[in-house]
Amino acid sequence: MNHVITFENRHIDTDKFGYLLNVNDWQPELAEKIAQLEGIELSPAHWEVVNFVRDFYLEFNTSPAIRALVKAMALKLGADKGNSRYLFRLFPDGPAKQATKIAGLPKPAKCL
């Protein structure tokens, strides 16, 4: 069974859980749509994390697990943003899961 998000009259392929199958299908307007499906309205604070996670993936070929996300954000954006309480407040279902989905990245391995 195929899963898609309908966006600007196009069908974007996703997995069963709503993660994009192709990282290059992503664009900022699509992020708004995915966030809406997640029940999140993207504030500038959300965007900062979404962009951060996407840049991390494009640089290192892997999505950051929570520990790495916290440390990397603390180093680049300061300790008030590099902490898990802040990140979970923005992404209640878990930043590693939700921010990656909105950033158009593949579903993180279940075992991490």
Binding site: F56, E59, F60, N61, T62, P64, A65, R67, A68, L69, K71, A72, L75
Partner: peptide
Amino acid sequence: KCFAALTYYD
């Protein structure tokens, strides 16, 4: 490419 990210995992 991911080896460069290991610093974030200590």
